[in-house]
Design a protein around this nucleic acid. Structure first.
Ligand SMILES: [Mn+2]
Ligand SMILES: [Mn+2]
Ligand SMILES: [Zn+2]
Ligand SMILES: [Zn+2]
Lengths: 133, 133
DNA sequence: TTTTCAATTGCAACAAAGTTGCATTTATGA
DNA sequence: TCATAAATGCAACTTTGTTGCAATTGAAAA
């Protein structure tokens, strides 16, 4: 499906900026930060607009927070290549790079105390990537 | 073991500020932020000093980042009540409160690509707490 | 196509979070 | 007690994120 249609289907205007942000996401090999969106964009995007675009996309679940474990949030397209919002990530403690992992780590019901409702889980494996080992 | 000895064993001076930060951690029911350390302290702690104390404790692994999923990092004592740095947490999407979960979630070796070395994992369950459901 | 108008953007100003340099204070061991 | 390295507090700064508002623009109606 075309990016323009994705936006329209969510009631968002298909602006140049938004289409470019989606292009940057599609182009990226993993979760990216606000700053990386700006740096990898061909358009000159205002910082504030990027924050607003990211927030709009989050609300519609076009993207989701990948929970990097680092100081800045990382985002990725939801549903891309089977990427739901519950897949695990790997973060290298040397180079700081975060990548997607295949498969689904499962939540164990037995661990939750009574009264709590689990809706989703975030799993992060920390360690060393092939380059840094 | 006394807090003073813990500090000295790591080669850190047992200052009033550091002992107070440890007291705040022991007093807390779960992972806490920089701001919460300051707010729950009986002493008047400078913001900068708290950042430096937290960083020193992190380096010595006296505390660790609990991977809250929220915008600010949360920290907790390492090894407290069997709390190693690999236990899962629960975060309520309504009230934002983060609590520790019992048990250990397992990392599945099969998911890691060749060349990657896993050292630890962070697991966060998101949902609703008993108060907010 | 042209007009219209709410949605979106960019800018300025602000707020919150985190860092750095340096002078002063303090814990520790001699 | 004294000397000294480590730690603290303060000021200034950077980075990250938010808000108000005027100008622009996409989309739908005329
Ligand atoms: Mn991913
Ligand atoms: Mn915990
Ligand atoms: Zn690496
Ligand atoms: Zn709650």
């Amino acid at each position: 499906m075309k990016a323009e249609d994705v936006l329209k289907r969510h009631g968002l205007k298909a602006t140049k900026s938004r289409l470019e942000v989606i292009r940057v996401f599609l182009d990226s090999g993993g979760p990216i930060s606000h700053k990386e969106i700006i740096e990898n964009s061909m358009l000159r995007l205002d910082r504030v607009s990027v924050y607003r675009i990211v927030n709009a996309f989050l609300k519609k679940e076009i993207i989701h927070n990948a929970y990097s474990g680092g100081r800045n949030p990382l985002f990725e397209l939801t549903g891309r290549g089977g990427a739901n919002h519950c897949h695990p990530h790997f973060s290298c403690r040397m180079c700081g790079k975060t990548t997607c992992l295949d498969g689904v780590a499962f939540y164990q019901k037995g661990q939750l105390k009574k009264g709590y409702i689990a809706e989703r889980q975030k799993v992060l494996i920390e360690g060393l990537c092939p380059k840094c080992r």
